[in-house]
Design a binder for these strands. Structure first.
Length: 302
DNA sequence: CGCGGTCAAGCTCTG
DNA sequence: CAGAGCTTGACCGCG
């Protein structure tokens, strides 16, 4: 196992900086949004975006050239256009600065996105995904799978094939830039989508498959890890980003649900001699990777 | 200022 | 049949 991922990263939260209140997840409940409106949303978004720049720079200083950014940078983003925010000028400036950094940024919008959905569900999905793509546009990033916007296929509605066909049909409703960025990931439960299930989607609309090692182990379908890895690998037109985490049940708590991710990382990643970037989805975030490297870092507020 | 109840969205599974 | 969990806990009112 001599092949090291070229870029490694983690998802959304930097625990070292969060200890000093540097975070990109500021939001508000519905009541507050109703009371304070987009002025407050703008204020929170600007703070989130500024802290994202700090996190990106921390990452570069610590050898992380890949980072999944939060999909909650802009609270209640579905209710306004980013360009209408009072702090838009500063927000855009900061996003441009982030986009110019030598780091690969990705997104993983939430589980409410169902591109195969209908009516309101589909409407909300398109709105959310387009907003995420707008953020990458504002960063000045050329649309490609290098900066993936990754989602799951969603529910099955009792019929996987028909649902994937609807997903493919609705894909044509998306903007060109979003279509160029969208990827899909294999699911962790046997009722949902395996890598081979997603191949038909790739054949129909060219969306690369994000291989999640842990999900595959829980829902392998008919493929071995190597087969699924290579199947997914071959759907990419740039270096793939794959996801890795260890099982909480296996390594930390026998009573944990089988889908639960471990806090830390335990086993080595086999990339089968291929060049891939890896997002580690361990609960202890960057700390679990630093620990693997034999580095430690104090997480205490300054 | 720290604590705990509460929180947009959709689907699936668990208890 | 209500609630947890998902990708990632965080907000906010109360004492």
């Amino acid at each position: 196992m001599d092949s090291t991922p070229l870029h490694i990263g983690y998802a959304c939260i930097n625990l070292s900086l969060q200890a000093n209140k540097i975070t990109t997840n500021r939001g508000m409940v519905k009541k507050t949004f109703t009371e304070k409106g987009i002025a407050y949303a703008s204020e929170l978004a600007l703070k989130n975006v500024r802290d994202l720049l700090t996190i990106v720079d921390w990452n570069l200083e610590h050898g992380f050239q890949l980072f999944r950014i939060s999909s909650d940078l802009f609270p209640w983003a579905s209710e306004y256009r980013i360009a209408t925010l009072p702090d838009f000028a500063e927000i855009r400036e900061t996003l441009e600065e982030i986009g110019a950094r030598p780091i690969r940024l990705t997104m993983h919008p939430g589980p409410f996105n169902h591109l195969a959905g209908q009516g309101k569900v589909l409407e909300n999905t398109i709105k959310d995904l387009e907003y995420q793509s707008d953020v990458f546009d504002l960063m000045g990033l050329k649309p490609s799978h290098w900066n993936k916007i990754n989602i799951h296929a969603g529910g099955t509605y009792g019929d996987k094939a028909a649902t994937l066909a609807r997903f493919a049909k609705n894909f044509s409703l998306l903007s060109e830039n979003l279509r160029a960025r969208l990827t899909v990931e294999n699911d962790d439960r046997p009722s949902l989508y395996t890598v081979t299930d997603l191949v038909s989607l790739y054949e129909a609309i060219g969306t690369p498959i994000v291989f999640d090692y842990f999900h595959h182990s829980l829902n392998p379908g008919s493929q071995t890890e190597e087969e699924a890895f290579l199947t997914a690998y071959n759907t990419w037109d740039v270096r793939p980003v794959f996801h890795y985490s260890d099982s909480r049940q296996e390594y930390e708590d026998p009573k944990a649900r089988r889908e639960a991710h471990a806090d830390w990382l335990y086993s080595a990643v086999n990339t089968y001699g291929r060049e891939v970037d890896i997002v580690f989805e361990s609960k202890m975030k960057e700390l679990s990777i630093l620990r693997l490297r034999g580095e430690t870092i104090e997480v205490v507020p300054k």
